[in-house]
Design a protein around this nucleic acid. Structure first.
Lengths: 120, 120
DNA sequence: ACTACTGTACTAATCACTTAGTACAATAAT
DNA sequence: ATTATTGTACTAAGTGATTAGTACAGTAGT
């Protein structure tokens, strides 16, 4: 996967979000070993340094941890993954509502527009 | 308004989005004169250079135009404003659906979650 | 033992964004 | 006429993101 990179936001942030998404959606499972920094960088089409920055930042959240010379692994704490999933969903919906309100809609109108879009 | 600035995206991009929002929501009307670059910069709490970059970029979309020494004005083309409003709304909803699908939901579930959030 | 692979660390160079500061020409207001 | 305000242009400096390149220590597989 060449990874959808947006130039107006730091690449390492987008990588973090992408990996978080892969974890909460079960693409990676609790305890799974991640590909190496170099392989992930090659897959994503970015410099290994950029990938390492993304991973070491991600590590500080506890979501992944590295074994010095054997690889990097997803946390075994399944509750942490579940909580992150909930948090990401909440943020997504909340941001959407805020953005739509900024465009002049109230909650009732937002629901209408969403239903309308789904039945496009 | 001190302007909500997010450090992980270029400030001038956020300024552009903010002004676009003010235009499509009628905070600025067609033909209105904008405050000066310096005043807008002071209000937003950014450097005048940053504000000028935002405004001159915004100008290339035709949404605003500058009269060399008398000021900067919102377009008189009300259809352009209406079209931008529609485009921004569509993009917002589409992005939301894409992000939620990436989190593993289908359209039916998205609608449910949105209704649930509104009645929180 | 040897080889390949792992995460990690470091320097250097480049680029975009931001800020500070200064300056100029044209219009508006007085 | 004079003054203030307008958009615009320019240089210089600082910061952060990215890339390129190199290197090292520990582990796994052979």
């Amino acid at each position: 996967m060449p990874l959808n990179l947006n130039l107006d936001r730091p690449i390492f942030v987008q990588i973090i979000e992408h990996i978080e998404n892969d974890i909460v959606t079960g693409k990676y499972n609790s305890g799974d070993k991640l590909p190496s920094v170099r392989d992930l960088a090659a897959e994503a089409g970015v410099n290994p340094n950029t990938m390492q920055k993304a991973l070491s930042d991600l590590e500080q959240t506890g979501l992944v941890h590295s074994e010095r010379t054997s690889g990097r692994f997803i946390t075994e704490d399944e509750n942490m993954i579940k909580d992150l999933r909930t948090a990401l969903i909440d943020m997504e919906i909340e941001d959407f509502f805020n953005n739509m309100k900024r465009l002049g809609f109230d909650e009732e109108q937002i629901i209408q527009l969403v239903e309308q879009f789904a039945n496009k």
